[in-house]
Amino acid sequence: MKRRDFMVASGSALGAVAMGSCMTTRPSRPSKAKSIMDRVMTYRKVDAHGHLLDPDRPDELLKAMDLVGIERAAISRPIGDNPDQFREQNDAILRAMKMHPDRLLGQCYVNPLHAADALEEVNRCLGEGMIGLGELYTHAKISNPIYFPIVEKCIEERASIMAHARADLSLLRPHHPETTPATTSASKDFVELAKRYPEAIIIHGHIGGGGDWEHMVKTLRDAPTIYVDTSGSCTDEGMIDFAVRHLGVDRLLFATDINFETGVGKILAARLGEDDRRAIFWGNFNNILRLRGQHAD
């Protein structure tokens, strides 16, 4: 008997507003909710956009990953502006990678305004086994020429470039009050970079993490070399389906940006075939990692 049938049969379907507290003691526990966790654990997952919150406790991150069945995660610590600060953050990521080489993948964070130091740091991080760059933040738009030497290095290394993206009104229509720095990358900035460097592996950060995701997707539609990560706290119903419709499954990368429940839930909620869901959860990003020989399997 299904739970709903059981409820009706046991006389618990009450009127519109009268519900007694005795209803709370019902012992039946769900088949379906358990099956949701079964579904969660069905899929292999690699997180294309993660962060290490506590630099000394990567084990805490692993616990959270385990809760929703994330096997591997690309992580960064985008904190600080000067070279000493970004080196320190990258050191923390390198330590975590070495502690858990089968689980944690490093993304190198730099401030491109310190051009020489940033390029040197990218060389160091890729040399020590990081998979690429991330999460490049709001110091300069991703299309700013100051990034070009770094991008060219990543092309040479077949390393991915993941950057923070927003689509706030203040970026799209500058007469609106500023809600994010004007140097924040908007989707069109990614398109501009991709046109200049079609061979670059560019990952547009979190369509659920900052602004009008419909605008993001439509801006990126005709830029086939750009990947989009699905992370961010926004879990609007239909967001993933809209992205699939306009970008295609192959361009979407599962990611959390430290939103584990919703990161996984939004992919489960999408109206996808099983092969497509597996591609987003695992295959697409694993194929990017394959280019540098850092894939699983």
Partner: peptide, 19 residues
Amino acid sequence: ATPFREYPSHVIRMELLES
């Protein structure tokens, strides 16, 4: 917040809360 938001995330949150 359905139907603004998708449903599974919220059920997953409850499942993790159980632990």
